[in-house]
Computed example of a mutant assay.
Amino acid sequence: MSMFLNSDEIATLTGRKVKSKQIEALRAMGLPYRVNATGHPVVTTAAVEG
């Protein structure tokens, strides 16, 4: 298992495919994330595992 969610998992979690909309959704959910050099949100699996 990876330390980070993959792009498909982030899309499923947020219900969004566009990176800016994913970031908005993560912010609204109160989930911690970082933005990588390509502008995509990066979420650890620990952040969503309860």
Rank of each mutant, 00 (worst) to 15 (best):
M29V: 05
G50Q: 15
A25W: 00
N36A: 08
F4C: 09
A47L: 01
K19A: 07
T14A: 11
T14W: 09
R27C: 09
G50K: 13
F4S: 06
F4E: 09
P32Q: 13
H40K: 15
E24C: 04
N6S: 07
T38A: 06
V18Q: 05
V48H: 12
V42H: 02
K19S: 10
V18P: 01
S7V: 11
V18A: 09
L31N: 10
L5W: 02
M1N: 09
R16I: 01
A46T: 08
V43T: 07
L31T: 08
I23G: 03
I23F: 01
E49M: 15
A37H: 08
A47K: 04
P41D: 12
T45S: 05
P41S: 13
R27E: 13
S20H: 11
R34D: 06
S7W: 09
R34G: 06
P32S: 14
M1I: 13
S2K: 01
L5A: 02
P32K: 12
S20K: 12
I10K: 14
F4D: 07
A11H: 00
V43K: 04
A25C: 02
M29N: 09
E49G: 11
T45V: 05
Q22L: 06
E49R: 02
V18D: 06
E9K: 05
N36G: 06
A25Q: 11
T45H: 04
R34W: 08
S20P: 01
